[in-house]
Amino acid sequence: MTAQPPEPSPRPAPSGELRASHDDREAVVEQLRDAAAEGRIGLDELDSRLEQALKSRTYGELAALTADLPRPPSPEDRPPLVVKGGMLGASLGPGRWEVPRRVVAYGGVGGVKIDFTRVECRLPEVAVEAHGEISGVTVVIPDGWAADAGGVEPGVGGLKDETTPDRLPGTPLIRLTGSGGPGGGVVVRHPNHRERRKLHGNPSQR
């Protein structure tokens, strides 16, 4: 019996033919609104493009609406966010703030606290370089997020990883590097009881 040749594999769909999600359409809507605010497109054209964006089904249809606009900066394009404790200390959060791909924290004399509990982050991974120095650096992550503190040199100040390994799908991994320093060290944890009370008491700010 003559062997039959294998059937050809289905041709993969070009990226422009892939179906777009609600988030993809919303991202284009925001880009169009920003372009109008910058004077790149007029209000009538904005209305027309917004209507088309909301009706678009594929990446290709969405791309055509922004092809003549500058690409918006992504978190990967942004420089590291540097936080210095100084003499009085510094805090990043709680509250909504735009998470870059990399954060660098220096505890200084006053210490630094980085609180991710109310942020929205679509990055698969965020690098946090923490240097405890005198008063330390504390990193607070929501339940369901995970941290990898294997890149931190404990030093005299030490390292405390009080997080759970139960990472939910779609949440970022916080990858820590740096050093504990001579003082407060580096702490990464989930919210404590006081912080949880504040979260539940202000649900609109989550």
Score class of each variant (00 low, 15 high):
Thr164Trp: 04
Arg194Asp: 05
Ala36Gly: 05
Asp77Thr: 02
Arg167Met: 01
Thr163Asn: 02
Gly155Met: 10
Gly60Asn: 10
Pro94Asp: 09
Glu51Ile: 04
Pro172Tyr: 10
Gln4Pro: 02
Arg19Ala: 10
Pro72Phe: 03
Gly108Arg: 11
Gly181Trp: 07
Glu7Cys: 06
Arg57Cys: 00
Leu173Glu: 15
Ala67Tyr: 02
Pro14Ala: 08
Val128His: 01
Thr171Gln: 13
Asn192Tyr: 09
Val109Leu: 15
Pro12Gln: 08
Gly157Phe: 02
Asp115Ala: 11
Gly185His: 09
Asp23Gly: 06
Arg196Ser: 02
Ser21Met: 10
Gly42Leu: 01
Asn192Thr: 02
Ala130Gln: 11
Pro165Val: 04
Ala3Asn: 08
Arg167Gly: 09
Pro100Phe: 00
Asp47Glu: 12
Lys55Tyr: 12
Ser135Phe: 13
His131Pro: 03
Met87Arg: 15
Gly95Glu: 02
Ile141Asn: 00
Phe116Ala: 07
Gly107Ile: 11
Glu125Gly: 08
Lys113Arg: 14
Pro191Thr: 08
Ala146Phe: 11
Ala63Asp: 13
Asp148Asn: 14
Ala127Ile: 11
Leu65Ile: 10
Tyr59Ser: 00
Pro100Lys: 00
Arg102Ser: 07
Ala63Gly: 02
Val119Gly: 08
Pro80Thr: 03
Thr164Lys: 14
Gly185Asp: 12
Pro124Asn: 09
Glu162Thr: 03
Leu43Trp: 11
Gly85Ile: 06
Arg40Met: 05
Leu88Cys: 09
Gly155Asn: 13
Ser91Asp: 03
Leu54Ala: 04
Glu38Gly: 08
Ala90Tyr: 06
Pro154His: 04
Arg189Cys: 00
Pro165Arg: 00
Pro154Lys: 06
Leu123Val: 12
Trp145Gln: 07
Thr177Gln: 10
Gly107Leu: 14
Thr58Lys: 04
